[in-house]
Design a protein around this nucleic acid. Structure first.
Lengths: 331, 331
DNA sequence: CTGAAAGCGCTTACAG
DNA sequence: CTGAAAGCGCTTACAG
């Protein structure tokens, strides 16, 4: 059941069938109808594999996401897919763990499958991955992250400013002893840490690194981090978690210990995932325009793929403080 | 940069290169080394598209999931992918909305891309989708759902028994006025409803359909459903939500209205997603072995693909009541 | 063990 | 506007 069968059935050449299939050239209405009805009758569906082979284009893009912050990345995936689908592109999702062999496997997978482009949301500890990635010779866009030294277009918020704004929000509420549940492994985490430090500094609050606790962007790591912080400090004013999932985990830890949020401790999240609006209390969070980031990254990639317009090296989206009920004014 | 270039560089035929690439036949150690070092030197990576074309096999399976219960389906995706990856298969995720055109698009997508098999987790209201799906002539496995009339292997729990167990759990705690936040659109929802009814009946509790409220498996729909129930009934003993995400939404609604869970109302969820362990209070839930369902479904599909062993038409996995703190003994 | 050649199902210059 | 034919990058009988 190939194009040849349709051609025979419709009494035309395979070239003509291909032309009506792809609307690529004028075909007389008569032949077009013959072909169309033949396709309908036989239930023919084109083989995109063969098509990809000759076009040297698969209409597939690879989305490399880390296996953390699942809800955040799920939202990105949705918006990326929706945007690409409208242009008849598919997405091949790669959820990578942070191990070299695992990353290697996925890069190879993407190259073997000849993806047309890549949206990268995972920052690797192994720089050789990037040289390998570049050899693929396909356009790459970074979404939500920054990889210093990798010169490709980025779509993200200003993480330093966002973390400053978040910290300032807590400072304005009268908090002074503000713990930070950091995200490790990503340079955006470093930027957010820098934003936190700078806000404290500008407010004249001295920095105390025992208020820092590393996290891994997951519910569980937020829970563990909160317990660690609480065991060190009995008098925290507030906790700033660098992902909503960690914040939700932290909230659970506080709940278990009988600590009331926000009355005992204020809690601020980061991301603005759907869940943030359904925690108890509702989480106040530094919100990224998640869907817009995914959409924009996809659009840039499409532009790189389908035209030779030059795309901006850096697209900064606006963050906001999304008001919830997890932070209390202590003045 | 194809197999031809490697052949030329190594001074062998393309057939030999192909053979060392695929380990498909004995090749003398001498030539094998020549080829390998040539591949290494040139940084050659095989074109799987061309390979798929001749083998008539893409090593891709389609995973059709609904755009609801995101966390549940994300967990399934992870386990499916992990299982398939070990066998060098990729997965193409299709998040479908429940509209005919959208479903149609995805079935066409899977056929055009010649997936080798399909794991189906979405139940359609449009039966013609299934006849269309069957025309694809590829193995299908149902995971987590039951589609009456579609004769393909299924991997799921016994939803009726699970819902009975859940309801009995609430009854044993002394609850009588038990509301149900149902899931609509899936026949597993109907089974769970039947389980709820049967448990009540066996306990001699009369059924009241004003205690039923439809939901759509999402946080938001659980929130709305809980509000609807609370506006109708001021004296509920317990609420049983047919997904954890709806339960979390319901918990938020209760929280907002100052209703304490579990002291005022017990809340029981369904699924056992990661989030269930991090709500406040921790959710008691009828837990499915989610990862095992994904893994098993993938294994069955692999078996259908790689051997002609006959696979079981129905694989029932064990559910459990996962103890949390959202249900209180009222006796 | 190794190679020349056919073929997978399409698209697209090139002629007519 | 339409068709015959080459070619995309592989795999694999078939010979040797």
């Amino acid at each position: 059941m190939g194009i040849k069968d349709i051609a025979k059935d419709a009494g035309v050449s395979v070239a003509t069938v291909s032309r009506v299939l792809n609307n690529t050239k004028f075909v007389s209405e008569e032949l077009r109808q013959k072909v169309l009805s033949s396709i309908e009758r036989q239930g023919y569906v084109a083989d995109h594999i063969a098509r990809s082979m000759v076009l040297k284009k698969t209409f597939t893009i690879g989305l490399i996401i880390p296996a953390v912050s699942e809800m955040y990345h799920q939202m990105i995936f949705s918006s990326v897919e929706e945007t690409l689908e409208a242009h008849r592109y598919k997405v091949l999702v790669c959820r990578v763990q942070d191990t070299l062999s695992n990353e290697q496997i996925y890069v190879d997978l993407l190259m073997q499958n000849r993806v047309d482009g890549i949206i990268l949301m995972h920052e690797s500890k192994n720089p050789q991955i990037y040289t390998h990635l570049k050899k693929a010779q396909v356009p790459i866009v970074l979404a939500g992250i920054d990889i210093p030294g990798l010169q490709v277009p980025q779509v993200r918020i200003d993480d330093l400013a966002a973390a400053m704004d978040g910290t300032n929000h807590l400072l304005r509420l009268g908090h002074r002893k503000i713990a930070l549940i950091m995200g490790s492994g990503y340079s955006v985490g470093d930027k957010r840490l820098a934003g936190y430090k700078r806000a404290l500094e500008e407010a004249g609050v001295s920095f105390d690194d025992s208020l820092l606790q590393a996290g891994g962007y997951t519910l569980e790591s937020g829970y563990d981090a909160m317990n660690a912080l609480l065991s060190r400090h009995g008098d925290l004013d507030a906790v700033f978690a660098l992902s909503d999932e960690m914040a939700a985990g932290a909230m659970h830890a506080a709940f278990q210990q009988g600590i009331d949020i926000p009355h005992d401790i204020s809690l601020l999240g980061f991301d603005g995932i759907t869940l943030a609006a359904y925690t108890n209390p509702k989480l106040t969070t530094v919100s990224q325009p998640i869907c817009e980031i995914g959409e924009k990254a996809a659009q840039l990639l499409l532009k790189m793929l389908e035209s030779n317009e030059v795309v901006p090296k850096l697209t900064i989206m606006a963050h906001t403080i999304q008001q919830g009920d997890s932070c209390l004014d202590r003045r």
